[in-house]
Write a protein that binds this DNA or RNA. Structure first.
Lengths: 172, 172
DNA sequence: TGCGAAAGCTAACGGCGTTAGCTAAGGTGC
DNA sequence: GCACCTTAGCTAACGCCGTTAGCTTTCGCA
């Protein structure tokens, strides 16, 4: 394993346990066993390390979604489960945090493809579905739902809306 | 206008033009005409200033949504329009950024109430709808949709799903 | 007139990402 | 075998960040 790979590995462990706020260059370097400036021998800046983590996370998410199959309900469940299992990774790939220009082409799309397939290529409904899943995950991770809220039921309500809609062959 | 109010006013202007990243204590202080440590005469810490901005933003959003009326489509349009008009304010009240423990009681709920009313008190569907709106806004603000994407059509697709669903009296 | 509170100030601390510039180790060409 | 260049580490430091300590000035009021 190259030193670069080792750094990314260590950074991912640090992200998982300490969150994005704990992912400092000094912390990564210490975990590797070197000093912060030495990291710049392997990566041009912190964003490059973050981009490597984002690539990993997106590919992992894409695999997970692909493994969930083509049906809406298990697909949505896989999306939510992945986010809840890796909340800090999800935070790293959501919002403005994504270093899109540093990611290899296709990586971002790979994670979106399963959702698009689940609505049979209808781009508008795929985007709405993505928004729904992303929004529900973000609200849940941010603790915006009151304690005791039945979040699974909210997912069911959303999925039912989209599922029924599809079964009727509706077009917006 | 008290000094505290002036600070919040200036901070909001700074937020609107420079975004959350530009909202530093030194920048706020300079814009007010004082030095950063003097801000601590009026607020205990930066989070308190942010909380004041969040309260303003949430109340403004709540007013905007209330003015949009009880129907789903114009309500959703108002939500999106507000977020696009004040992207940095939206960023400040979304995600983990919210200082919930520092906000006056009811402020957060005031912004959510119109969505809940629009689905006639069905909590599960209200949360799904909130997730949909929040998610679509976040994805759009983050530039996650490809250039030229018909985002309005995605909103229509989502709203149609929820709207049709309601008209049929469906329950999840 | 004196006093205390309010509100400003400078200097500084420990954190951050990052840069400049030095050094030690390892391989390669003559 | 020696000179040389590259690689990968290091320390010191810069300018930013939020924040604290401690000083001064001003002002209202008894």
């Amino acid at each position: 394993m190259s030193r670069s790979d080792e750094i990314v590995e260590v950074a991912q462990a640090l992200l998982d346990e300490a969150g994005p706020a704990g992912l400092s260059m000094r912390a990564i370097a210490t975990a590797v066993g070197i000093r912060a400036p030495s990291l710049y021998r392997h990566f041009p800046d912190k964003a490059a390390i973050e981009a490597a983590l984002q690539e990993r996370a997106l590919l992992d998410l894409a695999d997970t979604l692909a493994a969930a199959g083509p049906n809406l309900v298990p697909l949505a469940a896989a999306y939510r489960d992945w986010a809840l299992a890796h909340p800090h990774r999800y935070a790293l790939i959501s919002g403005q945090a994504l270093h899109r220009d540093r990611l290899p082409a296709g990586v971002e799309d790979a994670a979106a493809a399963p959702l698009r397939d689940a609505v049979h290529g209808d781009e508008d409904r795929a985007r709405a579905l993505w928004g729904l899943a992303h929004g529900l995950v973000e609200l849940e991770l941010a603790g915006r739902f009151p304690p005791g809220a039945d979040i699974a039921a909210a997912w069911r309500a959303g999925m039912t809306a989209f599922g029924e809609h599809r079964r009727q062959g509706f077009r917006a």
